[in-house]
Design a binder for these strands. Structure first.
Length: 560
RNA sequence: AGAACUGUAGUGUAAUGGUGAGCACAUUAGUCUUUGACACUAAUAGUCUAAGUUCAAAUCUUAGCAGUUCUACCA
């Protein structure tokens, strides 16, 4: 029996399939991912990467990685490296096609001269303020620059002098001669070259003029013969310019297609705002596990496969969206459920003494590593007279009939161990419960239970004598509002979640975890998914909580 | 204000003039369970508004309304 799965095509796939059907560019598909190396990649880039790399792969095409490095002020090689690392981690490969817009500076310079020669570009001495004023506003026509009608020869000469460093920063720019009355502001004689006497991360001081985005991006697409240039909606207004350059430069006709950016609730993607979080010390770094950066999510324990699945599930369209974070969490859990071994770990310990278990005796329990994976095998867990359970798994009195954790007079199963009968408990002066006394049913051992006793609740536990200690970092969403940057007159930092990080200095883990290494992931039974943090060393284990397990009991309790 | 784009359950996304408007997450109620997890079953809930074209409209047209984007020598 084969399941008939309808395959839905998004609008870009339809365009591509039509182009293939029409044998456009010989039915070749070539996309590109063009980050500016001025920051870390985040969840938004994740979608863009998935679209450009994923679509090309689907149709047997290729994807270039191209660094859009046309602004020396903000760009650094360190970012280049982190971007490459993140894309690889996500599971995509540009093979040997790693390009830089800065490699095209000579060609771009020639393109500009060609435009000047055709009488389509001019050198303008106006200041930035004057140009801004000339542009006017969308509802009112603009004014032409007084330098607009310089001769071609003069323009050629001045542009060369700009390149030769004759003029200071800001003294002159090169503009395209288009239409100062266009309702599209990008068509009102846009600036395409500016003077910046700064050191570029790759070309050093070789250049002092740099092309603007509009005169670098599309041209780079053409140089690389990109067939489908996929970008987000905010570049839609640039498309007429993009096409105008192709036509007037007579270069390869790449096609720009825009899709809606992906927004995720409780996450922000503004580089400036993300930087502010780092600078104000509200997170430890760009790689803080709470950050929506790829490096943050990696450290948090989100599997790359889950991120890809998330992109697939959120689709590709043109409407603005805010995706609920529950969907992200759902795919992460789904992925981790299949891949992680289950272990016993107690985060908030309460000592249980099994009074009828002989002192000094210990035995080995056998536990399945992962019931979702037949090949995961089993492991041994030591058991003894004193164990730790979770404080929240004990109550002095059961609150209602549906409660089936530990309480005096009740039976409860220790997972992979015995059934316990709770007899008594002790409190200190402050009224805190310090220890619980139980008896165990010797014939109820997991796997060979002949007791016939039923226990509704099953608890995770750790043998007190064998437990190892670890630091556990508990993360929650960074903001208390789903769209912290969308409130007018309110600073997004006002929504910062002060409880987004809680550190448990001393949690107790089963001894098998002693050999866990940086990046290893586990399900701590009944509490969530955890990953070994790189802050761990030989003396100290540190875990990050990736996510909790779904908790329908807790949710119900909270409601009542 | 001008232009462009976009409006489908709570959220995200399908339906390419003819389906009972589908799927996922979320929510609710159950079943199962040595993880109150997983798995499974079911329920709730939707075409922005109005007119028009058509045998037939979520889909085409017009108008309205709402949201987004653009007014950088950033990308």
């Amino acid at each position: 029996m084969t399941e008939i799965k309808k395959e839905y095509k998004n609008f870009i796939e339809e365009i591509i399939e039509e182009d293939i059907a029409n044998n456009k560019h010989g039915a070749r598909i070539h996309t590109r991912f063009p980050p500016e190396p001025n920051g870390y990649l985040h969840i938004g880039h994740c979608k863009a990467i998935w679209i450009s790399f994923g679509l090309a792969a689907k149709y047997g095409g290729k994807t270039n990685l191209r660094f859009d490095d046309t602004n020396p002020t903000t760009e650094e090689t360190a970012y280049v490296d982190s971007i490459k690392k993140d894309i690889k981690w996500l599971g995509f490969d540009w093979e040997d096609r790693e390009y830089y817009a800065s490699d095209y500076f000579p060609q771009l310079f020639d393109f500009a001269k060609k435009l000047i020669s055709k009488g389509l570009a001019y050198v303008d001495d106006s200041t930035a303020e004057e140009i801004s004023e000339q542009k006017g506003s969308p509802d009112k026509p603009g004014k032409e620059s007084p330098f607009r009608n310089r001769s071609i020869d003069e323009n050629l000469d001045l542009f060369q002098k700009m390149k030769d460093g004759v003029f200071e920063d800001g003294a002159k720019v090169l503009r395209v001669k288009l239409d100062m009355n266009s309702p599209n502001m990008h068509m009102r004689d846009p600036v395409i070259y500016r003077i910046k006497k700064e050191t570029h991360h790759r070309t050093g001081d070789e250049w002092c003029i740099y092309p603007m985005y509009d005169f670098a991006h599309g041209q780079s697409d053409s140089i690389e013969e990109i067939t489908h240039s996929l970008c987000s909606l905010e570049f839609k207004h640039h498309r007429p310019l993009y096409n105008w350059f192709i036509e007037n430069l007579e270069i390869f006709p790449s096609r720009q297609i825009e899709f809606a950016r992906m927004n995720v609730a409780y996450m922000i993607t503004s580089k400036r705002k993300l930087l502010k979080l780092v600078q104000e010390g509200l997170v430890s770094s760009w790689e803080d596990p709470r950050m929506p950066t790829l490096s943050g999510m990696r450290r948090r324990g989100f599997p790359p496969m889950a991120l890809r699945e998330f992109c697939a599930k959120t689709g590709v369209a043109k409407r603005d969206n805010v995706i609920e974070i529950e969907l992200l969490e759902s795919v992460v859990r789904q992925s981790l459920n299949k891949t992680t071994d289950r272990v016993h770990a107690v985060l908030d310990p309460l000592k249980v003494i099994i009074t009828n278990y002989p002192e000094g005796q210990e035995e080995i329990m056998i536990a399945t590593n992962n019931p979702e994976d037949e090949n995961s095998g089993t492991r041994e867990i030591p058991f003894s007279r004193e164990v730790y359970i979770e404080k929240s798994d004990f109550a002095e009195e059961a609150p209602n009939r549906k409660y089936f954790r530990m309480a005096p007079g009740r039976n409860v199963r220790l997972k992979n161990g015995y059934i316990l009968h709770c007899e008594d408990y002790k409190k200190n002066e402050a009224g805190e419960i310090t220890e619980v006394h139980c008896t165990y049913y010797p014939d109820s051992k997991s796997g060979s239970d002949t007791s016939g006793i039923k226990a509704k609740g099953t608890l995770h536990w750790v043998s007190a004598a064998h437990a190892i200690e670890a630091e556990v970092r508990i993360y929650d969403r960074l903001f208390t509002d789903p769209t912290p940057t969308a409130h007018e007159g309110v600073d997004f930092l006002d929504f910062y979640n002060k409880d987004s990080l809680k550190v448990i200095e001393k949690a107790y883990l089963e001894p098998s975890l002693k050999s866990a290494k940086d990046g290893d992931q586990f399900q701590f039974m009944r509490t969530g998914y955890f990953i070994v943090d790189r802050d761990s060393n030989d003396d100290k284990l540190v875990f990050n909580r990736t996510l909790t397990l779904k908790d329908s009991w807790g949710k119900k309790q909270k409601k009542s």
